[in-house]
Computed example of a mutant assay.
Amino acid sequence: MLIYKIVPRGLWSQAEAAGEFGGSPVDLADGFIHFSTADQVGETAARHFAGQHDLLLVAVDTEALGSALRWETSRGGALFPHLYGPLSLQHVSSTIELALDTNGRHRFPDALA
């Protein structure tokens, strides 16, 4: 199963240089890296990244993360994937640009739309 992280391009460039992603400022404050499922990522983008440019959508296979990945209750009682520890870039399945459409909403790949 794939899970997704929305990341500003500059922050991801730092992760690429380091070989791992330690998290965004919100992740660091919360003590884990926030991820979303395919069903959740659109709402995550709308709530937390509305109108933001220069974002990437990072896909990670859950099987690669082992016990550091926990499913915890969050927004509206839904279970969200949280990674306790850094994300090794070797576990990243894909990284794509998350562009805005003409209405200012993020365009997701057809598989996630």
Score class of each variant (00 low, 15 high):
Arg75Gly: 00
Val58His: 03
Ser94Arg: 13
Ser88Pro: 10
His82Asn: 12
Glu16Gly: 01
Val41Asn: 02
His106Cys: 11
Gly42His: 00
Gly31Asp: 08
Pro86Gln: 13
Pro8Arg: 13
Leu89His: 08
Gly66Glu: 09
Ser93Gln: 10
Glu97His: 02
Phe49Thr: 05
His53Tyr: 10
Leu28Gln: 12
Ile96Met: 01
Pro86Ile: 02
Leu112Glu: 08
Ala113Thr: 05
Leu89Gln: 13
Pro109Asn: 04
Gly42Asp: 00
Phe108Asn: 03
Gly10Val: 07
Ser24Asp: 09
Gly19His: 07
Phe32His: 15
Gly19Thr: 08
Leu87His: 06
Gly42Ala: 11
Arg75Glu: 08
Ala113Val: 02
Gly66His: 08
Tyr4Trp: 00
Ser13Cys: 09
Val41His: 01
Ala18Asn: 09
Gly66Lys: 10
Arg9His: 10
Gly23Phe: 04
Leu11Asp: 09
Asp54Met: 03
Ile6Lys: 00
His34Cys: 15
Gln52Pro: 00
Pro25Leu: 06
Leu112Ala: 10
Thr73Ala: 11
Ala68Glu: 12
Asp110Phe: 05
Glu20Ile: 01
Ala17Tyr: 01
Pro86Leu: 04
Glu20Asp: 00
Ala68Gly: 09
His82Phe: 07
Leu28Asn: 02
Asp101Gly: 14
Glu16Met: 07
Leu2Ala: 05
Ser93Trp: 06
Gly31Ile: 08
Pro81Cys: 12
Ala99His: 06
Leu79Tyr: 08
Asp61Phe: 07
Gly66Ala: 10
Pro86His: 08
Phe32Lys: 12
Ala59Gly: 15
Glu63Phe: 13
Pro8Glu: 15
Thr62Glu: 15
Ala78Asp: 10
Leu83Ile: 11
Ala17Val: 12
Gln14Asn: 08
Leu79Thr: 05
Glu72Thr: 13
Phe49Leu: 05
Ser88Gln: 15
Ile96Cys: 03
Ser67Pro: 06
Ile96Lys: 01
Leu28Tyr: 00
Ile3Leu: 09
His106Gly: 11
Arg70Pro: 01
Gly23Gln: 04
Gln40Asp: 08
Ala111His: 04
Arg107Asp: 00
Ser24Ile: 01
Glu97Val: 07
Leu87Pro: 05
Leu11His: 07
Tyr84Lys: 07
Leu65Thr: 09
Ala64Leu: 14
Ala111Phe: 04
Val41Glu: 02
Ala50Met: 12
Ala45Asp: 00
Ala29Phe: 04
Glu97Ala: 14
Ala45Tyr: 04
Leu83Asn: 04
His53Phe: 10
Asp39Gln: 14
Leu65Cys: 12
Gly76Lys: 10
Val60Thr: 11
Ser74Arg: 12
Leu89Ala: 08
Phe35Leu: 14
Thr37Ser: 11
Ser24Gln: 07
Ser93Leu: 09
Arg75Asn: 06
Ser67Arg: 14
Ser36His: 03
Trp71Gly: 03
Arg107Cys: 08
Ala99Asp: 12
Gly77Ile: 14
Ala45Val: 06
Val41Ser: 02
Ala18Met: 07
Ala45Trp: 03
Ala38Gly: 15
Arg107Val: 13
Glu43Tyr: 01
Ser36Arg: 01
Val58Ala: 04
Tyr84Met: 02
Ala50Ile: 09
Leu57Pro: 06
Ala38Pro: 00
Gly31Gln: 03
Gly104Cys: 12
Pro109Trp: 03
His82Lys: 14
Asp27Met: 06
Lys5Trp: 01
Tyr4Arg: 00
Thr73Val: 15
Gln90Phe: 05
Phe49Met: 02
Ser88Gly: 15
Asp110Gln: 12
Phe108Asp: 04
Ala46His: 09
